[in-house]
Design a protein around this nucleic acid. Structure first.
Lengths: 188, 188, 188, 188
DNA sequence: TATGAATGAGGTTTCATTCAT
DNA sequence: TATGAATGAAACCTCATTCAT
């Protein structure tokens, strides 16, 4: 990727993550990128597109990490545990960007098509993992259309909540608890 | 509540839910409310405050319904099932408003204090229900700080995802599946 | 004067002196007066008129004090000294109001007729005093059209400057110096 | 100075001098400048700053002219006479701007720091001239803290009064009379 | 006589986008 | 390829004034 583009995306991530899409200004992004404002428009045709590209680049990172989990040679249960770890760590690492993306995901009603596609790609990966476990007789047969988003919402909310509360955030404990809940449920 | 305030809040809900907080304009809210723009500022000192009051009024509605569930004279498992039903139905009914609120919750980094307080109030109610079940020996001992937001994220994501996909959304099936997952987990 | 009017004028003086005519709001004046906003319009037909009445009431106070000086049975030089004293003390006492009036006097190009009339009345009093001194052969024959505003500008600027600099403002010294300058001039 | 900035300042001077700071609108300034409203904000971050810059540019002009007087190789008395001439002429030439600035000086209670500094700079110049005359034994020893603002107030009020009355304003006579008064005082 | 809810014109400011260089 | 001066639409908000009660 053109290094100037990379610089711009990084600056955009910083500003938008901090202030949200609407409140972030092209002026500030230009300033942090150390390029002229016009340059932004040379590489991205609008603020919207800049945001989209940024979003995609982050989701791709998540996808990549997730794919690695799927390739592991372990049981489905172990993969699930690994996946939860990946997700929690990803949320921690890209906390602000993730919050930005989720915010936009909810906030905007205009369908940002390519973003939806990307998110669906990701859901498909999760789907795959669960199906694998079902086939291997490790998991019960659940409705994937329901389970997958539930799973995603669960991990993201719990992690973000943890971050927001700040006090003594214990990553390992979070991963362990989430895995336990998702595998064994609440009932005694 | 002053009926004019009610009218304005309703209009604000409509416009903001459709377009998001930033894109919603006071002009349009005024127009839909059939009051002059100045009137909005007579009752709310800023767009921000209007949004906040709207948010609170919606959360209060959810709280109220939740409280009714807590007062039922049934087992904790049954209460949980009822609660999931309440939540799913609430998300369906106030789908746009909920999406708006969640979007803001994620999107804004500025802490909107009174909102945080309200959400904490709600989490406390959930807490209460789960603790009850643990005491009654119906539920396993889970870390509530983790479980409660996980639970909320799960139901909200799954429901919203269901709505977004639109095709043949089956409410009862969703409730049933979510309850099943949350109670029994994924493991066979 | 109707006591309610007096209360309103007092409040207006306070607010306008603090914030200037434009930035003072009828809302705040009403609040401080402890009357409803509509009441202001019951007694004054506009903000402009309220300001005018206020202005006049202050100028009348100055006029009254000045007239007393003119009636003293002393030499013109002594009267001048007394007048300077009156003016300095008046500026000190009604500092904010005077600044407000002067600001408006300069700031507005729209002639506020009745205000101009009042200021002219005051200039006429000064005129009278100087003429008296000239007749009594105490003062040199100066061009009154020039001397009178010069005199007024001199005392007001020097006093306000003194107030603004704040540090150890010595009233008696100011009066003495001004009298000296005006009587004997700068030349050795 | 950037020529566009010059054009804007000129337009602002015109509009604000005519209507006062508050009543002047950015719309009108833009229109007269023949630039878009946004351009005003490209060069000045607010209406307030525009006003401030305008004020400073005018005071600088006065300062410059005054400095030239101080450099003359003549007696202090002659310098004073020259200074009065400069001031009267300046007030005549920039009559509207001066009225605007004085109006703001009185009207606004918020300290506009950089303006205060500028005015102090100017007072210092006057100080210098008077001290020179005292040293040269031409002037009596007066309290400069009092004399300088008094002097300024005198000339400005008398000149502005002259302009406001309009009828047959005689510049030379004004200068002569003021000089006479300031040098010799009122006493016979 | 007194109120205060309601108004709407009009003001300042922001900012994504364009375009000549 | 890169710039940054310039734009103008559109947003939020203020507040003097009105009027039904």
């Amino acid at each position: 990727m053109n290094p100037k583009i990379r610089v711009i995306l990084k600056a955009a991530a910083k500003v938008m993550a901090q202030k949200g899409f609407e409140k972030a200004t092209m002026d500030e992004i230009a300033k942090i990128s150390k390029v002229a404002k016009g340059t932004l428009y040379y590489y991205f045709k609008s603020k919207e597109e800049l945001f989209l590209k940024l979003t995609l680049s982050i989701l791709e990172e998540l996808e990549e990490r997730t794919k690695k989990v799927l390739e592991l040679k372990v049981s489905a249960v172990e993969k699930l545990r690994a996946l939860i770890k990946v997700q929690v760590e990803f949320f921690l690492e890209f906390h602000e960007e993730v919050v930005l993306i989720l915010g936009d995901f909810f906030g905007s009603t205009l369908p940002r098509e390519s973003f939806r596609v990307k998110i669906n790609d990701y859901y498909r990966l999760l789907n795959q993992l669960i199906e694998e476990g079902i086939k291997a007789n490790e998991f019960r047969k659940v409705n994937l259309e329901i389970f997958v988003p539930a799973f995603f919402g669960m991990t993201s909310f719990a992690t973000i909540r943890g971050i927001l509360r700040e006090k003594g955030f214990l990553k390992d404990q979070l991963i362990e608890n989430l895995t336990e809940i998702i595998l064994n449920g609440l009932k005694k």
